[in-house]
Amino acid sequence: MRRFVLIAIPYLWLLALFLVPFAIVLKISLSDAAIARPPYFPQFDWAAGIRAFISELDFENYIFLTQDDLYWKAYLSSVKIALISTALTLLVGYPIAYGMARAPQEWRATLMMLVILPFWTSFLIRVYAWMGILSNEGYLNQFLMWTGLISEPLTILNTQTAVYIGIVYTYLPFMILPIYSALDRLDGSLIEAAEDLGCSRAQAFWLVTIPLSRPGIIAGCFLVMIPVIGEFVIPSLLGGSGTLMIGKVLWEEFFSNRDWPVASAVAIVLLLILVIPIVLFQRNQQKQAEAEQ
């Protein structure tokens, strides 16, 4: 009895506040288009039964998504931005993680704390900090003009470049931490063994260090890519009107156009896109857990 209650409370909570809302999104995405005016048709009617209810659902909102090229362009651009920024984060993050793992033992805890600290700091504030740096009169342009490298201010804010900078900056800890923990576990004598067997430094890095840190690299890449696809704050603060990302489109569809059925359809398609990386990520984590046993 006690066990039943223990299971039931969190179970019912998640059913009511995670699964049911999701079912509602699914249902509304299949309903007739109507602007910000519930109830949406068809409504479920016990007398008519489930069959009648299902037969009235249709895919018109999804068909609408394919007709307006705004949507598929936004999906495509989200995926593109996610892939490029993940690669950039890896390029920036790997040397930092590597440097941390090679740092003297007594520094490591402090370096670790320095990586985690931004993670606890407000996401919004960290994105906001770049607005002052990247704007036309911003600190970066001031600095570059002072050094004489440029004479005219560069336009960075409200371009995709700013979005990439923002993503790399905010998601960097997610990339560093798993790579660091993989590198930290790496036995230093393996590299010495490789060098002993005739590898150069660079070969040893390429043939030993990189393959052994691969689980960390994969985990870090997914941890960056999955949330970036649905990102809203960064494109809306740094990307301007020129940056098309699906999270922003969904937000505008909902709050500006107030077209809830289409917003729901956008959400469902976004989830379908995310399923692939999520499943791959899950597999990677599982494999790693099995390897550790």
Partner: peptide, 23 residues
Amino acid sequence: FSGMIYAPLVMPEVITGLSLLLL
């Protein structure tokens, strides 16, 4: 149950927000 525990971790915030609002 375990799916419902892990799914919100990877769910885009816009979708979580939207679905709860509709509820």
